[in-house]
Structures are given as structure tokens and as C-alpha cells.
Design a protein around this nucleic acid. Structure first.
Lengths: 213, 213
DNA sequence: TCTAAACATGAGTAATCCTCACATTTGCAA
DNA sequence: TTGCAAATGTGAGGATTACTCATGTTTAGA
């Protein structure tokens, strides 16, 4: 007798730290845990990362690890959250004072290059975001992040094309942004030369759309 | 004393059936296994799919399951392979006799609609391809599939724009195709109304690029 | 009919996530 | 300073699950 219902479809809530570290000592230990996890992900990928190994390398017991992270995904999620927070500021700054088409062209091109470079250089980031589709919580984080970033782009578009339908601009910005993330992920999974070509092609395609009409 | 090398980076080869079923009886049993797996994925997702449950539902022992599939991923992979084989024919047919810009516009739009519809309707397909980023073998299958499909598009482009640089056309086709897959995956993970808008926006963006110059 | 190969079985192995009962440390009020 | 509650730390062990293997059964063909 098994469940015939599909419990998966419900919104799996993101697991927040089981208990926020309130003492200095534990805050440092949590940092060590995250650093250990980051190193292990860089070496082996998040899938091969073992919780026991994270604990060992951080110099804490497995129990302590689970005191602050409800499960394995939460560890990865915590790292992912840091990256998004960092990049958000960078993106906001780059797009804030774009005033004309040429400005957008330059700022956008730079942003894509930075993003591409980050993925090429950061194995942890690459690993985390490539698992994004499979993990519901990460997928939600990525979507939320993408929406937030797309909003900066939307703001620019509304400035440059005040006559256009706002909803359409929002859709365009969101789509272009997501396509960019997909393009970069694609680019790093083929050889470097083709990757560069793909990123260039994406830039052209995105800008054509952003500056249309 | 731990390995400091990262064994993950090496090309994990796709696991082929451990032993191809040669008798009628076993061929039928393998079909039942795949059907059971498909049903379970539809209900719970491939991650929650348990090999024991697949065997039970197919009415075979766990040992039999492993006689034909070397591991869990191979089961999912076998299902994925079927979908790609099916869709390939469909895509090839749709693009084969495109002769002008208007023809491309129509054929492309239809293809995207079909693909979007398929993802909306087929939970198994949705699940399999959303895990695509995490699983190296599936990622390779998807890339190979995408390249093959993009080739049909490349052929059309070369016909419509004979003067253009062939490599550039190939890059464009591949990128546009991958963007399409990403757009559809994005569209099904937001609400239906926004999903529709995103797919429309993708069509416009892609066609603008495909018909440029 | 006989035999070798293909097929079938399921209890058992190994790996891993995570819990929990208990020990220790910290901050702070009396 | 002292006492104590809350926060933190520990690691053996429970629970789950992918996968193996020794052994038995069925099939195809000579």
C-alpha cells in the first residue's frame, strides 16, 4: 500500500539554518564549515561532497554541522546565497547610471564578460549553479535572483524606451537575463573557443532585442 | 589520507545496458521496467524514484533490473534517449522544406509551440531534462541532441543566407536552439500566463536573430 | 535429450545522510 | 563569585538505499 499522491509537487520550502549561531565561537565554526564545503565542492563537486568530510575538514563533529544546517542541501544553498548577494551589488552598480543605448551596450557587454569569467574561474560557482535545475530550493533562489537582476535591466529599458509597454519590457528583461545565464552555462561546457563564440553571439542577440525599435 | 585529485573532471562515460536482452521474454521485462520507471518519475520525480520500487512495480526482482541497467542513471538515460529519438524525426521533418523567411518563421514558431506543449504535458520529460545540468551523461546527451537539431536549423540558414559566414550561422543556430530549451524550461517553472509571454518573447527574439540581415 | 548461455532471484554489503541522548561551555542574573 | 539555563559540542548508531553475487531456473539450438 503506497501513496499514490505526488508529494513532490508542493513547494518545498528552503531550509534555513536550524539554529543561527549566536556566539562568537559558533559563528567562527560555521565559517569553517562553509569554507570546508566550498573547498570540497571545488575539488569534487557538490554531489560527491560528503557531510562527514565537511565536518572532518572543518575540525568539528558531524553533530555540530547538523546543528546549523538542517541538511546537505542547506550547506550548498548557504554558499549559493553568498554568491548571489555579492553579484547583485555589482550588477546594480553597473546598470544604475546607464543613460543611452551606447551606455547599455557597453555595460551589458561588460556584465556578460564578468559573469562568463566568473564561471570560468570559480569551480564552486559553476558546480552550484549547474545543479540548479535539479534542486527545487536552488531553482527558486536562482529565479528570485534572476528576477531581481532583471529588474535593474527593466529600469534601464523603461528609461530608454518610455513609450513601450512596461509588461513587455519586464518580460524581455527577464528572458534576456535568463538566456544569459543559460548561455554562459552552455559556453563553459564546450571548448573555450566555441564558448567565446557563443557568448559573443549571445551578446549580439540580447542587445538586438534590448535595443529594438 | 585522502585523494587530493579530482576524479570527477574526467569524462564519465555513459553507461550502456549491462547486457542487451536477447530473448523475447527479457525484452518484454525490460519494457515493463521502463514503463514502471516512467510512471514513478511522473509521480515523484526521478530523484525520488527508488530502484526497489521500479522492480516491484515491474513485477521483477531487483537483480533483474540490474541485469539490464548498470545503475539508476542508466534507467533515466534510456527513457531520455527515447524522447530525443522521437523528437529528432519531428524536427527534421518540420525544417526540411523551409524555403524562405516566412516559411522559417512559421516552422520555427510551430516547433517551439510543440516543444512547449510537450513540456507542459509530459511530467517525465520535464523531470528528465530538468536534471540535465547535474548529470554529466544526460548533459552530454542533451548537448549532442541539441547539436543535431541545430544542424537542421543551420541547413535552413545556409539556404536563406548563402553569403553569411558558415561558422557564424552554426553558432547562431546552436545558441538559438539552446536558448529555446532554456526558455521553455523557464516558462514551465513560472505561472502559465508569464510562461506564455516568455515563450512568445523568445520566439520574437530568436526569429529576429535568425532572419537578421 | 543435453548443455551452455541467458536469465531470474533476493538476502546481504557498503555507503551515506541524519538523529539523539548526553557532555561541555558560555553568558548572565543574583 | 556562583549557579543555572541556554547554547553549543559530540559521535555512535539508526535508517535508507544503490548495488552485488552466489545460486537457481529457463531457453535455444545441436
Amino acid at each position: 500500500m503506497e501513496d499514490t499522491a505526488a508529494p513532490v509537487s508542493s513547494q518545498e520550502q528552503i531550509a534555513s539554518p536550524r539554529r543561527a549561531p549566536s556566539q562568537q565561537r559558533s559563528r567562527e565554526r560555521v565559517e569553517r564549515m562553509l569554507a570546508a564545503a566550498s573547498a570540497l565542492i571545488a575539488e569534487q563537486g557538490s554531489d560527491a561532497m560528503r557531510m562527514g568530510e565537511v565536518a572532518e575538514r572543518a575540525g568539528v563533529s558531524i553533530g555540530s554541522l547538523y546543528q546549523f544546517f538542517p541538511d546537505k542541501r542547506a550547506v550548498v544553498w548557504a554558499l549559493a546565497e553568498r554568491y548571489t548577494a555579492e553579484s547583485q551589488a555589482c550588477i546594480s552598480a553597473a546598470l544604475a547610471d546607464v543613460g543611452d543605448a551606447e551606455g547599455l551596450r557597453q555595460a551589458f557587454s561588460e556584465l556578460v564578460d564578468i559573469y562568463y569569467g566568473l564561471f570560468l574561474a570559480e569551480p564552486v560557482m559553476r558546480d552550484i549553479w549547474s545543479g540548479t535545475q535539479a534542486d527545487k530550493a536552488l531553482r527558486q533562489l536562482e529565479l528570485a535572483d534572476s528576477r531581481a537582476n532583471a529588474e535593474f535591466l527593466t529600469a534601464v529599458l523603461k528609461r530608454l524606451r518610455p513609450a513601450a509597454d512596461p509588461t513587455a519590457l519586464e518580460t524581455t528583461a527577464f528572458l534576456v537575463w535568463q538566456m544569459g545565464e543559460a548561455a554562459v552555462r552552455l559556453a563553459i561546457s564546450v571548448d573555450r573557443q566555441e564558448g567565446d563564440r557563443l557568448v559573443s553571439a549571445y551578446k549580439r542577440m540580447a542587445l538586438r532585442e534590448l535595443l529594438a525599435e
